[in-house]
Simulated scan of single mutants.
Amino acid sequence: MDLDVRRLRVLHEVALRGGVTAAAAALHVTPSAVSQQLGQLAREAGYPLVERSGRGVVLTTAGQVLAAHAERILGAVEQAVTGLAVAHRQVAGTVRVGAFPSAAGALVVPAAARAMAANRGLDVRVVEAEDEQSRLDLRSATLDIVVLQEYDHVPGTTIAELDRHPIATDPMHLITPVGWGRDSGRLADLADVPWVASAAHTPCGRSTLRACHLAGFEPDIRHRAIDFALTLDMVAAGLGAALVPGMALRNVPPGVRVRPLAKPVTGRRIFAVTRPRGAGPTHPAIAAVLAELAGTDPDPDQTSRRDPVELLSVDR
């Protein structure tokens, strides 16, 4: 039995995305092309791999078994490519990095520029991506590095199959309209004012609410904004106070007073995740980008540096 690795990648994508149409979009091909590849793979395997379910398809038992092996096979192929690059000390190729907006601008773009300036054969591509979608893209190898965030006071879901690389901490700052004249930096001094916060379901929104509770009051949240630029504009217009992470304060409009919290009660940690490397090294090109993100020297042989993975599921 000969199984084509490229067709195994298609099956893996269907299993990961939950259907032919979503897999086709991720692979940048038509749904009919995906169906044809699945049909050919089924003939190679000797078993049907998908079956109709409503308007879509689901994996058969054989399809589920083969999809599980496909992920491991694709991982082994990637490790083989990495081994060759390490043996030749080659920092070259394309590295695709996904990140949420504030980190993309403040961290990823400068790191990408530095990495490419230091390694002429390296091509770093930056993609603004939502956290949940970016993790799927990482598993499918559409992305190679994903930058994520953890907010204080926000519980999340542990994901054990990804490698974690700490990057930075990002403390929250208190922002108020200049005309208010309340510059103490103490949350408790703003218990009686209107507030601007992120959407209630987001980590930033939940973290803001929890920080105010810890300061002893229920905030009067009158305005909601996911985009930090909009939050700053609302505060500049005098609509309320807000808590904003430092990376979102690169372009503060006139009329906004920025103060570090007098007692730091909340913040976020920024970290990158990559596909698991097991006991092997990180690809030199990926290691070079990670090093620039973390401000350290790249070291492709990082077998002893793997951190325990404690990923929090976050939305932006």
Rank of each mutant, 00 (worst) to 15 (best):
A68R: 12
M247F: 12
T21V: 13
R186S: 01
E132T: 13
C212W: 02
A118W: 09
R224Y: 09
T176W: 06
E78T: 12
L187Q: 06
G18H: 10
V252I: 13
A85K: 09
A199Q: 10
G278S: 09
E130Y: 01
F217R: 05
R182S: 04
G255A: 07
A118G: 07
A76P: 00
H28G: 12
G46E: 05
T282F: 10
A118Q: 13
H165R: 04
G246A: 14
E13V: 09
T61M: 10
P219K: 03
A241Q: 04
V154Q: 02
R43A: 14
S184K: 07
A236M: 01
A288H: 01
A197V: 05
L59H: 01
T282N: 06
A225I: 07
V109F: 04
V193K: 02
V109L: 13
D315H: 09
A236N: 05
H283Y: 08
L143C: 01
V20Q: 01
S53C: 07
P194W: 01
A92T: 15
V244G: 02
D170W: 07
R305A: 13
A211P: 04
E128A: 10
H88D: 12
L190C: 03
G98W: 01
K263Y: 12
G240I: 08
A70M: 06
L162S: 05
V314E: 03
V193A: 05
P31T: 08
P308N: 07
R6G: 12
T30S: 15
A294M: 12
L138Q: 00
A24K: 02
R306Q: 13
L27K: 07
T142W: 11
T158R: 15
T82Q: 05
T169W: 11
A211D: 00
A24G: 03
H88R: 15
I226P: 01
I73V: 15
L249R: 04
A199E: 12
G295D: 04
V29Y: 00
G156V: 03
G295R: 04
D2F: 14
R89E: 14
D233T: 14
V309T: 15
D301I: 15
V86G: 02
D315N: 06
P308V: 15
E310H: 13
M1T: 15
R277L: 14
G54Q: 08
A225R: 01
A85S: 14
A248G: 03
R89S: 12
P254Q: 04
A85C: 08
P166E: 02
P101G: 04
M247W: 11
G179A: 09
D152R: 06
T176K: 02
L187G: 04
A199G: 11
V50Y: 03
A242Q: 05
D227T: 10
G93W: 10
V309E: 03
G246D: 10
N119P: 05
Q79S: 11
A112M: 04
H223Y: 14
A285E: 08
R139N: 02
E161A: 02
P284A: 05
R224L: 08
P155C: 01
A229W: 10
A113M: 13
Q302T: 14
G280E: 14
T94F: 08
R7F: 01
L209V: 15
Q133R: 15
P276K: 06
T296Q: 15
I226R: 07
S184D: 11
R269H: 14
R250T: 13
